[in-house]
Simulated scan of single mutants.
Amino acid sequence: MVRTVSAAETAPATWPWLIHAEQLVVRAGRQVAVNGLDLTLDTGVHGLLGPNGAGKTTLMRALATVVNPASGRLRLLGQSVTDPAGLRQVRRELGYLPQHFGFYPRFTVREFVEYVAWLKEMPKSAIPGAVQRAVERVGLADRADTRMKTLSGGMLRRAGIAQAIVNEPRLLLLDEPTVGLDPEQRLDFRHLLRDVGVDSCVLVSTHLVEDVAAACTDVVLIDAGRLVWQGTPAQLAQRGTAGDAGDSATERGYSALLRAHRGQVPA
Rank of each mutant, 00 (worst) to 15 (best):
I127G: 06
A126Q: 13
L63Q: 04
M60C: 09
L39W: 05
P98M: 07
M122P: 05
F101G: 15
Q89V: 10
L76Y: 04
L41V: 08
A117I: 02
S80I: 00
T43C: 06
D38A: 09
M60K: 02
A126N: 10
S71D: 09
A33Y: 06
Q79V: 13
R110G: 12
E111K: 13
E114A: 12
T58C: 12
G53V: 11
V81W: 02
G44V: 06
D38T: 08
P69Q: 10
A70P: 02
R75C: 01
A126D: 15
Y104S: 07
S80C: 01
G36A: 11
T65H: 06
Q31C: 10
V67C: 07
T57Q: 04
D42W: 06
I127D: 07
A117R: 01
R106Q: 10
L74N: 02
V66P: 00
Q79A: 15
A85H: 14
R106I: 12
A28I: 02
A85K: 14
V26D: 09
T108V: 14
L24Y: 14
T57H: 05
V25H: 15
L97P: 01
V26G: 04
R106Y: 12
R75F: 01
T65K: 00
T40C: 12
D83C: 11
K120E: 15
S71Y: 04
P98G: 05
R30A: 14
R73A: 07
V45D: 06
R75N: 03
A126H: 14
L97F: 05
A64H: 03
Q89K: 09
R73M: 03
E121P: 09
V45W: 12
Y104N: 10
L76C: 06
S125I: 10
G78H: 00
I127L: 09
R30D: 13
K56V: 07
V25E: 12
D38I: 00
T108P: 13
R75H: 03
Q89T: 13
L94I: 06
L77K: 05
R91W: 13
Q89I: 11
E111L: 09
V109P: 09
V34N: 04
A54S: 11
G102A: 15
V26P: 03
R91F: 14
A130P: 08
L63T: 03
N52P: 06
P51V: 12
R30F: 01
L39C: 08
V32H: 02
A85E: 14
A64N: 01
Q79K: 14
L59S: 10
G47C: 09
V32I: 12
G78F: 00
Q89A: 14
N52G: 00
T43E: 09
L94R: 01
V113F: 06
A85D: 11
R110W: 15
S80H: 08
D42H: 10
M122G: 02
N52S: 06
K120W: 08
R30N: 13
E93D: 12
T82P: 01
L59I: 11
L48K: 01
L48C: 03
Y96N: 05
P98N: 06
P69W: 00
G95R: 00
N35L: 03
N52H: 03
G50V: 04
A54Y: 08
P84R: 03
V34A: 07
P123I: 02
R30T: 11
L39M: 13
A130L: 04
A130D: 13
M122Q: 07
H100W: 05
K120C: 07
L77M: 05
E111W: 11
R92V: 01
